[in-house]
Nucleic acid binder design. Structure first.
Lengths: 353, 353
DNA sequence: CAGGTTTGCTAAATCGGATTAGCAGTGCGA
DNA sequence: TCGCACTGCTAATCCGATTTAGCAAACCTG
């Protein structure tokens, strides 16, 4: 049934030429090295008819390039979002004929080391080092041995590695603008972080800090102050529920900016408990575009994390790194920000609508 | 900065022996081939001190084994669940020193062919061919060229490939038993499929068919008939909502068996519309253990898809395939069923509680 | 003490390509 | 007719390991 793979030597034999010639023709260097049309055609024909495919392992040994990149992340299973990031990377890689190794560290530095080693042992051409939520990370030693890109992460210490992250500041601006555009000038409350810059949950989440900056900037420009802000220690529904309930005990908000969709889910529940309708009584805008955002009723308007695009972009940046001469010191440690698009759905309405 | 990798030749030189000897010692065949203790120690020391690591690409060329397996699926991004499957496979593979290539076909046969090719070009030791929801698939030609396993999928035509799937029939039994155990004997309605065996959505979903079989079996044993069944064309919240509303127009159900959690989400909304409380007025049990199941209020009792375990099991089975001699014709096309555990939460209460 | 065995190690081939150096054969000018 | 350039192809080496075949020295054994 199964037979040996066709090798270059087989093709050469069929075409009646040396393996050298066959290699030359198939690598497209035939013209340059003066192989005759006749021979070229014979080789091409032999290769096609025998369904020859070069053994990438062999090529890898000789040339040191395996057409493979490593994708290391802290967790892939935590959120569905991660999948889109991998998917974007996967497709961008495939378009260039590259495959992806994936690995998960669970945040364990030892595992991190092992995985990097395993990938280097397999001679990957480059590595994408990803975090599943945007944050600052300690760049592991040995990551710089091959071209590498930080995805959804920024280096804690200055580093020559480029990074690709969502443009969270602009996302904050967009969310705030959505409420301003709807006509809100007061009664805007923040659930998840704020109201002041320093009011962010611990843990180095970039999202909290940057979303808040963008929100505050746009509101300030319009002469608006957030009516209140509520830090959620963990951005889960139950914390959003608790924070919103606390708020509702004292106030009747006009609009909520929830720092992510899970918080918004909790906020919806709290508003429902108090008999308040979204968006008639309270408008809500959020971040992430988690799948539940489209399932919630009314559907949630949210500024989307562009996971798919992040994955693609990381591959693009990695390829420019691979293409770059070692030691050519172009722009180092460049940060690429990927725009976050707003998904306009049903949770914002003009005040008093 | 970066230096060449340490090779076996380097180690041999440091230890003052031939590469052959070094290879023998490091592959553990030193004893067998009568290498002296002294030389063995010298080689081991040299390897350790120089931090030698074998180049897997080279080994791959020589031995044809790359310590790598390919994981091909139709989609990875569709559901968070997929992540757990990959995670399980990843961990099981890592435990054996294997890495995973991943690829996505989007259900496109041409892409499927290309990916398979790309993996063979890279000399993978085996392939896991996965579907993101359990169904029957056409086994692609060329999959059998290396050891392979079907994950979450059954072959449409008889095939020698083993498969690993969740035990959906038993899951159906478990769900039905949960309601019987709570004391229900009537007013049990099915949302998503049923009531008769043939009432399943089109598309070859194994889940619908098998869950229904298990449910009907257990109910029948207890002398209970489902009060009604409602096929949902697509198992999304809006269909669950519509089906449950339709049901509520005519009846007051005691308990619902929803065929998955997204349908249950819709059912919750419909019950809420009619002012019915879960579980006081209506108990609900469901399948999948999608993340939203724990976020819904009250939290949903559901029979979990064991994605993580499925991934692990697939790797286990793949390794026995790899270990098997070609043509030893053991049990062929064996189907491995992974148990689905029930997550008891808040959506079931005794009748009239 | 010749002949056989055992011990302990190494030379060389191999995997499947890429690449460098170079070798015949032809044509052309002087 | 010799020398040189050019054309068109190939031999040989290399990448980094594994593996087979075998060699030299020491050790019996009768």
């Amino acid at each position: 049934m199964s037979r040996r793979r066709v090798t270059l030597a087989d093709v050469a034999k069929i075409a009646g030429v040396s393996p050298t010639t066959a290699s030359l023709v198939l690598s497209g260097r035939g013209r340059e090295l003066r192989i005759s049309q006749d021979v070229e055609q014979r080789v091409l024909k032999a290769a096609a008819e025998s369904q020859y495919r070069p053994n990438i392992v062999s090529v890898g040994l000789r040339t040191g390039t395996t057409r493979t990149i490593g994708f290391i992340s802290d967790t892939i299973a935590t959120s569905r979002l991660a999948g889109d990031m991998i998917k974007g990377a996967l497709e961008a890689a495939r378009e260039r004929g590259f495959m992806l190794f994936i690995g998960e560290t669970e945040g364990d530095p030892e595992l991190e080391r092992l995985l990097l080693q395993a990938m280097h042992d397999r001679q990957v051409d480059g590595i994408i080092f990803a975090s599943m939520y945007t944050r600052t990370i300690k760049v592991p030693k040995g990551l710089a041995a091959t071209p590498a890109v930080l995805l959804n992460a920024l280096p804690k210490q200055p580093s020559p590695l480029p990074s690709v992250i969502p443009d969270e500041i602009e996302a904050g601006r967009i969310a705030a603008r959505a409420l301003l555009d709807a006509g809100y000038r007061e009664g805007i409350h923040l659930i998840g972080a704020g109201p002041a810059r320093r009011n962010v949950p611990a843990g180095g989440s970039v999202a909290a800090v940057e979303r808040l900056i963008g929100i505050r900037e746009v509101l300030a420009e319009a002469g608006v102050k957030p009516a209140s802000g509520h830090v959620c220690v963990d951005w889960q529904p139950e914390y959003g529920l608790a924070a919103t309930r606390a708020l509702l005990r004292n106030e009747r908000p006009k609009a909520l900016i929830c720092f992510n969709d899970r918080i918004a889910l909790g906020a919806y529940q709290a508003l429902d408990d108090y008999g308040l309708k979204v968006p008639a009584d309270v408008s809500v805008v959020s971040f992430d575009d988690h799948p539940i955002a489209a399932w919630m009723r009314p559907q949630l308007t949210t500024v989307a994390l562009p996971h798919y695009e992040l994955g693609r972009k990381a591959v693009d940046v990695l390829f420019t790194e691979i293409g770059r001469d070692r030691e050519d010191d172009g722009e180092e440690g460049e940060v690429h920000r990927v725009p976050m698009p707003i998904r306009l759905r049903e949770s914002i309405a003009p005040p008093g609508a």
